[in-house]
Amino acid sequence: MSATAVSVPRRAFAPSPQETAPRPVRAVPAAAQRPKPKLAYAVVAIGGVLAMVVVQLLLSVGLSHGAYEISALQQQQQTLSWQQQSASNDLLEVSSPQFIAANAQALGMVINGTPAYLRLSDAAVIGVPAAAMEETEIPVGPSTLVANSLIDGVPLVTVPGATVDPDASATGVANAAQPIPPLSLENGIPAPQTR
């Protein structure tokens, strides 16, 4: 702060010494009698502080109690969600096509090949209906050909006492009852049949 910058405007407004009249001299007034402090105020103040402390204490007890409750509930929630996951996985496993097929096969069900439709509007049969036969050109293998290790040993619902048995199949292995025919060399070296 520069002295000139401040002093110039102050000089412009300050009254000149000649204009200030001397003040009349007065005696200092006697100090007023201090009133006696009321006890009530002190009681209120201290009581207030105490109340705050107590409320604070209760609050924090409540809060920390709540914290334990939250913690216990969170634990419970987690356990329940694990349980739910475990149960829904079990459900998914028994909903798998392999399990359904195993149950159907245990009942002796076979796959119907030829589709045929009944048109509701005019009761016309579309396609050629035919009965499902056990003998098919491709012998349908056991349901465990398409593996699902999650359902191994799970009891079947259609046949009491039976379970899904993964040992019933041997994938990719030639049927032992039907030996591989020897290759005929009658017409010379076997030629590829490109059809």
Binding site: A101, G141, L145, G172
Partner: peptide, 10 residues
């Protein structure tokens, strides 16, 4: 899969 596995086996 069931179909092709059956034929692979057969």
């Amino acid at each position: 899969q069931q179909l092709v596995a059956s034929q692979v086996q057969a």
